[in-house]
Deep mutational scan, measured.
Amino acid sequence: MMAYMNPGPHYSVNALALSGPSVDLMHQAVPYPSAPRKQRRERTTFTRSQLEELEALFAKTQYPDVYAREEVALKINLPESRVQVWFKNRRAKCRQQRQQQKQQQQPPGGQAKARPAKRKAGTSPRPSTDVCPDPLGISDSYSPPLPGPSGSPTTAVATVSIWSPASESPLPEAQRAGLVASGPSLTSAPYAMTYAPASAFCSSPSAYGSPSSYFSGLDPYLSPMVPQLGGPALSPLSGPSVGPSLAQSPTSLSGQSYGAYSPVDSLEFKDPTGTWKFTYNPMDPLDYKDQSAWKFQIL
């Protein structure tokens, strides 16, 4: 009977010793046993002879290597770790002494450095960015050149030099007046198309007034536009458009034309069986010896 009264063996659950049927240790109110408190290391007290050895090595170098620390530790009968900690504390003490010396050398008012006064946003004049500046400075420094007289040679050079070769001289006033084509001369031969040399188009003023001019072949195509416009036809070669000034309004060009419109200028042929003959000019830059190549039959 006494065997049943004795408590059973101890069981360990999660490293906790349980005594038989008792489960009081598993209750929430019972805390787990805490780790033992780490003991504080005792402070090391250095003797005068030990301090002399350490100070002598510190005077040589503030960062001794492990071999120098072990050698000193053997002399003063201390572990190497204590020597390492002593050098660490000695360097910190040396830095603190240097900072105190710097503070003593500075004057009393030198510690508080005078800061520059901050400028207020409204006091300083700042350039306004509302208006974009002129990058080319046209509004201040540029002045347009004065327009020359209508009959000045410089204007003629600016007008005619675009179309004339570089080897030719500017046309005088008398020749510029001949550039304007007359109405009857352009409409006299509506079906004849003559190819003149390129030099005649640039230099010869008579080429624009003769039936064999460069633009005589364009007349049949330009004249039928007159009834559609409801007024006189516009002429690209009329009046002052080739003269001194090219800047004319469309209203000033509306009254200039080749001449009176005639039914002869239409595109319809009077004789459907007729042929169109292209007159060959020996001055043509295209060297075609066979003139029969310039004739064709309209079917």
Rank of each mutant, 00 (worst) to 15 (best):
N281P: 03
Q50I: 15
Y32R: 10
S262L: 12
S223I: 14
Y261E: 02
V85C: 13
T275Q: 01
V226G: 00
A192R: 09
S213C: 07
K270L: 14
R41W: 14
F46V: 09
L286E: 02
V83D: 13
V23A: 02
P211Q: 03
F87G: 13
G231Y: 14
A3F: 15
P285Y: 09
P116T: 05
A117K: 09
E80F: 09
S199Q: 05
P170H: 08
A293N: 05
F46K: 13
Q228I: 13
A56R: 08
H10S: 05
F296I: 14
N281W: 15
K295T: 15
L54Y: 14
S150M: 07
R98M: 02
Y258C: 05
Q96P: 11
I162F: 05
L57S: 13
G178Y: 12
E55Y: 11
P9V: 10
G20D: 04
L146K: 11
V131S: 07
L246R: 04
N6K: 07
N89T: 08
R48S: 06
Q50F: 15
S206T: 09
P135V: 04
L267M: 06
S12P: 04
K270S: 08
A192E: 01
V13N: 00
A17V: 14
L246C: 02
M283C: 06
S203P: 05
V242A: 03
T61K: 14
D24S: 08
G110C: 08
Y142G: 07
A29Q: 03
T44W: 13
P220R: 11
P7S: 04
Y63H: 13
Y280V: 10
K295A: 05
Q106I: 01
E42V: 07
P153Q: 05
L51E: 15
T275I: 07
P33L: 05
Q96A: 05
K118G: 01
P31R: 09
Q104N: 08
T155F: 15
P236I: 13
K75E: 14
P21R: 07
P236S: 06
L16R: 02
S167F: 12
L179C: 04
L218G: 00
G8I: 12
G122P: 07
P64Q: 14
S241W: 15
A117D: 01
C202E: 01
L74M: 04
S213E: 01
T251E: 02
P227T: 08
G255R: 12
Q248K: 11
A29S: 07
C202D: 00
S167M: 05
S81Y: 12
C132L: 03
N89M: 15
G183C: 07
P79R: 07
L16F: 10
T47P: 15
R119T: 01
L78I: 11
G178S: 07
P211V: 08
S238L: 08
S167K: 06
D265E: 13
R82K: 04
Q50G: 15
Y191N: 01
S204G: 08
K289H: 03
W276L: 02
A92G: 12
P190Q: 05
V30L: 08
R69W: 15
P244A: 08
A200C: 11
G151T: 03
S182F: 12
L18H: 00
G209P: 02
P250E: 03
T187G: 07
H27L: 14
A92I: 15
P197Q: 03
P165G: 01
